[in-house]
């Protein structure tokens, strides 16, 4: 089932990428990133099945990081919303150099 798992992983990842590229809502883009992380997790699990459980441990770490990222990222989005009254990334350019 490895090849199939990787196939699904790749498709999900690509969908996440397309989501990031086409959407402007910060929260949705954030969720797309979560989707990409999940796609990667799927490959990890699939490979772990063949090459050892270290891959599953990695998934564990990825989830932790994802949780931390969600906490901080959402906090940033909330702060941004308070500041700009929007989460549309087109209207947010405080990173402009």
């Amino acid at each position: 089932m490895l090849a199939e798992a990787i196939f699904f992983s790749a498709v999900l990842f690509t969908i996440g990428v397309i989501g990031v590229l086409t959407r402007r809502n910060a929260i949705i883009i954030f969720m797309c990133v979560e989707l990409m992380l999940n796609a990667v997790n799927l490959s990890f699990v699939a490979f772990a099945r063949a090459y050892g459980v270290a891959g599953q441990v990695f998934v564990f770490f990825v989830m932790t990081v994802a949780a931390a990222e969600a906490a901080v990222g959402l906090a940033i989005i909330i702060a941004m919303f308070r500041h700009k009254q929007t989460v549309n990334l087109q209207n947010i350019n405080i990173l402009k150099g």
């Binding site: 590229l21 910060a26 990334l89 150099g97």
Partner: peptide
Amino acid sequence: LGSWVQSGQIGTYAWVLV
């Protein structure tokens, strides 16, 4: 040019990244 590239638009950055 650099200022134009540094638009502050995360979307653009994502495009460039991809």
